[in-house]
Design a binder for these strands. Sequence first.
DNA 1: CGCCCAATTGAGCTTCCTCAAAGCTCGTGG
DNA 2: CCACGAGCTTTGAGGAAGCTCAATTGGGCG
Lengths: 271, 271
Amino acid sequence: MAGLMRVKAPVAWRGLEHSHRGRILREMGGNCLAERFGRHIELNEHERAALTSIEDGERRFRRGATLRSEQGDGGDIFVVEQGWIFCSVLCEDGRRQIIRLHSRGDLIGLDDLAFAVAPDTITALTDVTVAILDKARLGQMFADHPRLAALLFAVMQVDRVMLTDRLVSLGRGSALGRIAALLLWIAARLRLTDPANDGAITLPLTQEEIGDATGLTAVHVNRTMRALDEQGLIARSGGIVRLLDEARLARTANHVRREEKFDLGWLPPAR
Amino acid sequence: MAGLMRVKAPVAWRGLEHSHRGRILREMGGNCLAERFGRHIELNEHERAALTSIEDGERRFRRGATLRSEQGDGGDIFVVEQGWIFCSVLCEDGRRQIIRLHSRGDLIGLDDLAFAVAPDTITALTDVTVAILDKARLGQMFADHPRLAALLFAVMQVDRVMLTDRLVSLGRGSALGRIAALLLWIAARLRLTDPANDGAITLPLTQEEIGDATGLTAVHVNRTMRALDEQGLIARSGGIVRLLDEARLARTANHVRREEKFDLGWLPPAR
DNA sequence: CGCCCAATTGAGCTTCCTCAAAGCTCGTGG
DNA sequence: CCACGAGCTTTGAGGAAGCTCAATTGGGCG
C-alpha cells in the first residue's frame, strides 16, 4: 500500500526527461512546425524554409513558469519543442480549470490573433523548450504559402475537436470516466513520439493538477485513482501509471478514438 | 405560479421568428460570410465576390432535422443564415452533451476539413436556413485571398475561446453558474443582431436541452431556474426569460466578457 | 534532522441525480 | 367547440457522487 501513487511532480518530469532524454535530444533542434505539418503532407523546399523562417528564436522555461497570463494583453505565439505545457483559467473562488495540455509540436497562444486580452494562462508543467513564432511572418505565410495556411487551418481543427471531447467528458462523465479519459489521452500523446509505448505513463501531473484538469477535487482524484487501481484498470507505482486494460478504460471514459485522417483534397496547390 | 416557465420549444422559435421577423428578413439573402467578415475588416470588391462564390446554394431544415450525424463520414460545411443550430455528442448511456449553439454568421462543420468521421451531430434547434459551402472553393480562397484566409483563421479562434469558456463553466461551475453562463451567452448572441435587446430572451431551448448543454438533468435545470428566479436574477413568463441583474448573473457564472477586439495587424495585404 | 510538498484516509455534508407523479399548453380530431 | 393526446414543466422523496475539513504518512531536499 505504502509507496503507491507517489507522483511527486518534480520527480515525474525528471523521470520523463531521463527515460526519454536520448530520443528527445535527437528530435530537438529540428523545425517543430515542419515536423508537425510533415505528418500530413509532403513539404517542398520552399515550404520547409518558410516554416523555419516563422520560428523566431527559442526559449526555455522552468516548471511552474508562466508563459502568458490571463491578465496580460496577449503576447507571443509558441510551438512546444520539448516538455509539457498547460493552459488554465482561474476562477473567482481560487479554483482552477486546466483547459488543455500541450506537448511537442503543439501551437499555443493563437488566441492572441483575435483577442486583446488572453483567455487563459499558459504555464510550464515541466521544464520546457518552446520556439517563438513571429506573428507578421505567420501572416506572410498566408500570402506566400496558401497550402501551408490551409493545412494550418486543418490542424487547428484537431485542437478544436479535442476541446469538444473534453467538453463531453466534463459535462457527462463520472469521476472515473474523466480520469480514464485523461489517462488515455496522455497515453495517445506519448505514442505520437514513442509509438512503442506500452501504456506506461510517467505522469507529469500532480493529483491536484489532475483534479484541475478534470474538474474534480484532489482528494476525489486520489480516491478515484485508487478505484481504477482496485478495478484492475491501471497499476500505479512510484509516479508511473500503467494502463492495464485500455479497452475497458475507453469504455468507462466514453472514449472515441480519433484518427487524424485528414481529408486534404481541398488544399490549394503548393507554391 | 402556474404559467411560469412555459418554454415550449416550438412556441419559442415561432415566437422568435415572429418578434424578429422583420429584421431577419431584411438581413437575409445577403452574403452571410461577407457580413461576418465585414465585422472585422473592410472588404474590397474582389474579396466580397470571392466570399459569395464560396457559398454554394441554400438549404432549409425544420426543427429537429439532422444536418450531419456523428456516424456519417463527414459532409458539408455550412454557414447559418437564420435560426439556431446545435452540435451535440451522444454518450453510450443515451445521455447527450450539447457542445455549442450557433446562430447567424457561424461556420459549422469545419471539422470535416480534418477528420474523416464527424466528431459531433449537427441538429436544427429551430427551423433554419443555411448556406452550403464548397470545400474546394474554400481551398481556392486560401490561394486567391490570403487576407480572407488569415481572417477566417482569426475568426476560428473566437469559436475556440468559446469552447474554452464552456469548459471552465462545466468543469468548475455550479448548476446556478452554468445556467447563468448559458443565459448570458445567449443574450450576448442576440445582441449581436439586435444591440437594443434589453435582456429579454425568447429561449429557443427546452429545459431538457438546457440540461444537455450544461451537463445537468432536466429536473435540476428546472429547480435551478426557479432558484435564479427566486433570487431575482431572472424573471420567467411564457417562454421568455428576462435577465434582471446581469452583473450578479455574471458573477455567479464566473463570466468573462470577451470583447472581440481583433489585433489584425499581422494580416497580409488584400488582393 | 527537520521541513515541505504531495499523497492518503476518515467523517460528515452538499449538490445533483433518479424515479415517479402531476399539471399546463397546444394541436388535433371528432 | 370540446375532449384527448403529446410534449414540457413542475414538484416530491430518497439516494449517490463528489466536496470540505482535518489529520496522517512518505519522500526528497536543504
